[in-house]
Write a protein that binds this DNA or RNA. Sequence first.
DNA 1: AGCATTGGTGTACCTGTGGTACAGTAACCA
DNA 2: TGGTTACTGTACCACAGGTACACCAATGCT
Lengths: 208, 208
Amino acid sequence: MAEFQRRKGSETRDLILSFAESAVLEKGFGGTSIDELIAAVGITKSGFFYHFKDKNELAKALLQQYLDREEELFDRLFERADDLNDDPLHGFLVFLKLLAEILSDLPKTHPGCLVSAFCYQDQLFSSEIRELNAAGVLRWRQRFLERLELIARHYPPKIKVDMSDLADMVTGIIEGGIVISRSVRDKDVLPQQVLLFRRFVRSVFLGN
Amino acid sequence: MAEFQRRKGSETRDLILSFAESAVLEKGFGGTSIDELIAAVGITKSGFFYHFKDKNELAKALLQQYLDREEELFDRLFERADDLNDDPLHGFLVFLKLLAEILSDLPKTHPGCLVSAFCYQDQLFSSEIRELNAAGVLRWRQRFLERLELIARHYPPKIKVDMSDLADMVTGIIEGGIVISRSVRDKDVLPQQVLLFRRFVRSVFLGN
DNA sequence: AGCATTGGTGTACCTGTGGTACAGTAACCA
DNA sequence: TGGTTACTGTACCACAGGTACACCAATGCT
C-alpha cells in the first residue's frame, strides 16, 4: 500500500505555492486553510509541513516568488521596450504601452497583487515579511526613479513634479487599477489607467 | 450575579463595528476572530450573535458604514471647496488640496480602505457584499465623472483623456497611495500622490 | 550491494474559531 | 404588569493550525 506519487519535491512545493497564491488573492491569507491546499495538491498535512515549517514560511515563499517574478517581468518589458527605441523617454513610453497591452490581453481580470493583499493583512505576518514587502515596493520606486531621472536629463520637465512621487505613481496606478478592476469586475480599467498615466508622463516631459 | 453592563444596544453594536474595522484592516477578515472582538468589547459570544446573525452580516455592516462615512466626507470636502471657489475646476483643485491636507494631518499612516481590503478577500463574502463593494466604487466614479464633465464644459481639455478614466484615477490614486504608504510605512506618500494627481488635473485643463 | 537522503504517509493529540441551540434574566418602557 | 431589548450561560459540533513522532519507499551516491 501507500503508493503515493513520488514527485521531484520542488515540483510539489511549486504546486503548493501556485494553489496558495490564487487562494490567498481570493480569500486572503487568514481565509486560506492548509487543508484546502493539501486537498488541491493531493498530499497530507505532514507533507505540507515537510515543505514549509509553518504558515508564515508559506507566506514568505509566496511573497518572495511573487517579487522575483515581477522583477523578471519588468526586466523583460524594459528590455523589449528599449530594444525598439533607445531614447529613454520613448523607451519608457513603449514600456508602459507594452504593460497595458499585456494587462489588456489577460483572459480575465488581473488576479491581484500579493503586495497589496499582504499589506492589508500585515499583522498576520512576521516583521521579516513586512520588511520584504516594503523592500519590494522600494525596489519598484528605485527602478522607476532611475529611469525618470535619466529621462529628465534629456527632457527638462515641462511640469514641476517630484520624480520620486512620479516613480511611486507607477506602482500606485497599478495597485489602484487592480483594486478597481477587481471590484467592479471590469478587466479593462487597469490597462486604461496605465495608459492614462502614460499620457501624464508624456505631458510632463513633452508638454502635450 | 450577572451584573452585566446594560448599554443602549446600538452603542454595543457600534463598538463591535469599530473594533472590527481596525482589526480587519490589520489582519484581514479571515484573520479577525469573533473571540477577539467580544473580548475587546466585553460581551459574550451570544451577545455578538444577538447583534449579527453571522460573520457575513458583520462584514456587510462594516462595509456599509464605511461607504456611508466616505460619502459624507466627500460631500463635506466638496462643499467646503466650492464654498471657497465657485469655479468648477478650481473647486475641484481645492477639493484635492483639502483631501491631501487631511491625509497629511493624520497622526499615523492611513488605516486603510475597506473596499480594497474586501476586494482582496471577496470569495469570503456573499455576492451581496461584492455588489455593495462594486456599487461603492461606481458611486465614486460617477461623482468624480460628473464634476470632470462639468469642468470640461468650461475648460476644453488641453490633453485628450477619457473623463471616465480620469474619474477612476481619483479612486485609484488613493487606493494605490494607501497601499504604498502602508507598505513602506511612510504616511506622506498618500498625500503626495493626491497632490501629484492634482498636478495632472491642472495640466489636463490648464495646460501647465 | 548497501546506505543515506529525499519526499513523503499515518496516527495521535491539543488549542482556537465559527457556529448552533436554547433557556434564562435584568433593565427599561408603556 | 407585561413585553421588548440586550444580553448571559451552558453545551455542543466541525474544522483549522499546529506539534510530535514513527515509519516507509524510491532515488542517488559510493
